Simulated assay, not measured.
Amino acid sequence: MEHSLNHYQDPVYEAALQRHGLDTFEAWWTRDIAWFEAPNQRRGGWSGVGKLVLPQENLPALTLFVKKQQNHGRRTLCHPFAGEPTFRREYHRLQSLAKAGIPAPKVLMYAESPQAGNQRAILVTENLHGFVDLEQLLPSMLNQPQHARRQLLRAVARQIRRFHDLGWVHRALYPKHIFVRPDDVAPDVALIDLEKARQSLGAWRRARFDLAALHRHTAELSDRDRLYFLKHYLYGETYTRPLGWCDRQLLKWITKRSKR
């Protein structure tokens, strides 16, 4: 891709994107997209996400989420002044999850391009077909029979545990960032919005931070459902065992932190 840095493009989609004139950074940058909301103005720059639907001949339309940002970075030891673009961080995390076999939005393109001293970045991902975010599912889920409700809780708990076992903490684990594709046997679960995610030492630290955020935003769930979720997160197939002393302390910390 011309005049771009840290460029990645999925070769499977290259021809389709070229047919729509999306073969350069500037073509993506100037392309009108339907913003979900006005771009955020913070960190000395701006960042926004929108939706783009590209028709395809004899194939379903390609539904994309396009993230654009300018001078919107996070300062790190390696990038102490300008900061590292937050979408670069998210791009690397999405690729890591793909390698680990954990469902996540598929990256079609990522690129950066400086302009007149401005740091610009674009991240393009494909729509998660058939998935619905947990925030939308919660109201109907509460009216489901117990076995169906707990099947979903079990799938979410185990996927979050897989994510944590890779050493990641999400740092924004809200229901709207957990996507589920319902299935009568084993629902698929995917995580989105990974720009804040980072590596973190300590399994308890990861659990306490992320599960407290999720606990705080799922107040509709009963205490029994919460306990069922936590035991599947902790023990998997051996979830019927009672909570040990350390895990009871973890539950107390999660509950306490969720009220902050």
Rank of each mutant, 00 (worst) to 15 (best):
M1A: 00
E2R: 01
S4F: 01
Q9W: 01
Q9C: 05
P11V: 03
V12I: 11
Y13A: 14
A15T: 15
A16W: 12
Q18V: 14
H20R: 02
G21W: 09
D23R: 07
A27M: 07
T30C: 10
T30G: 07
F36D: 15
G44C: 14
G45R: 01
S47F: 09
E57H: 02
N58K: 10
L59M: 08
A61P: 12
T63R: 06
L64N: 10
F65R: 02
F65M: 01
V66F: 12
K67N: 12
K67M: 02
Q69C: 05
Q70L: 09
H72C: 11
H72T: 00
C78V: 07
H79S: 13
A82P: 01
E84D: 05
T86P: 01
T86D: 02
F87D: 02
R89Y: 00
E90V: 10
R93V: 11
L94G: 08
Q95P: 00
S96F: 03
S96Q: 06
K99W: 04
K99D: 00
I102S: 04
P103M: 04
A104P: 05
A104D: 05
P105G: 02
P105D: 05
K106T: 15
M109G: 01
E112Q: 11
S113E: 05
Q115F: 12
G117F: 11
N118M: 03
R120D: 04
L123R: 02
T125R: 08
G130N: 09
V132T: 14
D133N: 15
L134P: 01
L134K: 03
L137H: 03
S140M: 09
M141H: 03
H147D: 15
Q151S: 13
L152Q: 14
L153P: 10
L153D: 02
L153Q: 05
R154A: 03
A155H: 07
R158D: 00
R161V: 04
R161W: 08
F163W: 03
F163R: 09
F163D: 12
H164G: 09
H164S: 07
D165V: 01
D165Y: 01
G167R: 00
H170V: 06
A172R: 05
Y174G: 03
K176T: 02
I178K: 01
I178A: 07
I178R: 06
R181W: 00
P182D: 13
P187A: 04
P187F: 07
A190F: 11
A190H: 13
L191F: 05
I192G: 05
D193V: 12
S200I: 00
G202Y: 12
A203C: 00
R205K: 15
R205T: 13
A207R: 13
R208D: 07
L211A: 05
L211Y: 11
A213N: 13
H215T: 05
R216N: 06
D223C: 00
R226M: 02
F229S: 14
Y233N: 09
Y235F: 14
E237S: 15
Y239G: 00
T240S: 08
T240I: 07
R241N: 06
P242W: 08
G244I: 09
C246I: 10
D247C: 06
Q249T: 07
L251E: 15
W253L: 11
T255E: 13
K256D: 13
K256V: 15
